Computed example of a mutant assay.
Amino acid sequence: MSDDEAAERTVREERSLSPMRKTIASRLQESYREAVHVTVNRSVDAEGLLSAVAAADPTEDGVSPSMVDVLLCALSDTLDEHPAFNATFEDETHVLYEEHNVGVAVAIDDGLVTPVVADVGSKSLGELASERRELTERVGDGDYTMSTFRGGTFTVSNLGPLGVDSFDPIINPPEIAILGVGRITERATQNGDGDVVFRRQMPLDLSFDHRVVDGADAARFLGTLAEHLDAAEQYV
């Protein structure tokens, strides 16, 4: 091939975006066009979280609470202390909400969707586990309406099960923040006696709209969440 000849490209196939994928693309474009994205990262000790999961009894309908369910309990308590993050920003107005309506990202064939678990703070760990499982199964089966994804005040995206260590989650507009969760790994740390011990750590990535809250606010948010995760057995 000479210098003035372009490399050949053979089309394998052409794919039109599905209606769902078009909606996702439009919302992601809106998010990047409107919000000023900043992400802060912090690794937290996961021993308390995993102990709580191990200690949790199955619900009456046989659902065993998972790490995400316990995380939602800790997140709700954190949002109580940092209400500016449980909010939306539209028409130059920062609206803070009483209910913690948390969208939990779920991967389906057409992309990533966020069914909303309503009023997380009013529910027990078992109730959260049952409701989230039911929502996830319905979305996976295609049994949902657009109202399933509306009314959110905050979003969580967990890519840990897929082996992801860290990522920059994209804010779900008009919300102002989203929490990304990476995979739990065991790391060497130094305890209070100066001895090296191995403890499980979990990376958290908080993306926020810098028009509304600042980096110091986000750092304090993650610090509070880390404290609640340390004491996660209170939710069992």
Rank of each mutant, 00 (worst) to 15 (best):
131 E>K: 11
187 R>W: 08
202 M>C: 02
228 H>V: 07
41 N>H: 15
202 M>R: 01
123 K>N: 06
226 A>W: 08
165 D>A: 14
8 E>P: 07
212 V>M: 04
144 Y>F: 12
216 A>G: 13
187 R>C: 13
114 T>A: 10
108 I>P: 02
142 G>C: 13
167 F>E: 03
39 T>I: 09
179 L>N: 03
171 I>L: 11
162 L>G: 06
157 S>G: 03
73 C>W: 06
145 T>G: 11
195 D>A: 07
129 A>N: 02
218 A>P: 09
27 R>T: 07
67 M>F: 14
62 G>I: 09
131 E>M: 11
101 N>W: 00
44 V>W: 01
196 V>N: 10
21 R>Q: 11
136 T>F: 02
201 Q>P: 04
166 S>H: 08
233 E>L: 06
98 E>A: 14
210 H>R: 08
5 E>V: 15
51 S>F: 06
137 E>Y: 11
38 V>A: 09
126 G>F: 03
160 G>T: 02
96 L>Y: 13
101 N>F: 01
188 A>T: 08
63 V>P: 00
162 L>A: 13
42 R>W: 05
74 A>H: 06
79 L>V: 02
44 V>Y: 00
51 S>R: 10
138 R>D: 08
25 A>F: 06
7 A>T: 12
12 R>P: 00
164 V>I: 15
116 V>A: 00
111 G>V: 12
215 G>S: 10
85 F>S: 02
85 F>M: 05
208 F>V: 08
202 M>G: 01
202 M>Y: 00
165 D>N: 14
146 M>W: 10
